[in-house]
Amino acid sequence: MPDLSPLYGLLAHLLPFDCLQDRFMQQALAGLLLLAPMTAAMGIQVINFRMSFFADAISHSAFAGVALGLLLALDPGWTMPVFGVLVGLAIMLMQRTSSLSSDTVIGVFFSAMVAFGLAIISRDRSLARDLQRFLYGDILTISDGQVAALMGLFAALMIFQACNYNRLLYIGFNPTLAQVHRVRVAVLQYLFAGLLALIVMFAVQAVGVLLVTALLIVPAAAARNFARSAGAMFWWTLMISLSSAVAGLLLSAQDWARTTTGATIILVACGWFALSMAAAARSRERLA
């Protein structure tokens, strides 16, 4: 395991807040600075592909993934993301091959995943205590190993986005048009689903099952109201996501706040969304 102390020291130096002098806060900040750009970039496509329900279904499969790990005496830290990716790919396969509508397919998987997780957990009452951690998330307990894993995922995802952002935009615009004009729609959709599932599983640990979809879609939704081009939308989403993550972490650590970090991050992002709605309304008035 690489020593990440120099990274944490640098973060504490760049953001010299009292609350960031504790190592667990530095770890949380590092985790969020890696996670926020990933959820921002993927969130743009989640909105373009209308896949917020997909992200919800994956996040709810976290229960089943953890329960499966505990049942099979395997590390839940591995079974959860692997199970999430498999569920994501299975949903995509069903969506592409079945005549059922997309939300029906996801709804079926969603229900199956929650029922499966609850069924296993209900066999062992002690497991139920772990559920709360996944419902609400806790970025403050992130370990060095998880930060290192996030670094690897960050590198892979940014390479994927840099190579495929334009094509994913094309598919989000209209998959038939993209397919005819030589974009490899199926391959990119499966890759996207797999990567999204992985990121959702990491994000669950930060903000919890209940709020993970918000982390993906709220910054991108707010950015839509500010941006006038696809290029600008990326930078707006990134800025809103990062500022929400950092501000949410700092605010939640204040004595007068003492709120859950994940929920505070989402509230800051929702503040951005409210601001964006006001900006969009003003822009419409000017044009009228």
Partner: peptide
Amino acid sequence: DRGMPLTVSEFLVMG
């Protein structure tokens, strides 16, 4: 999706 912020130039270039 008509709400997608995508300029005509970007649309023609993205492929």
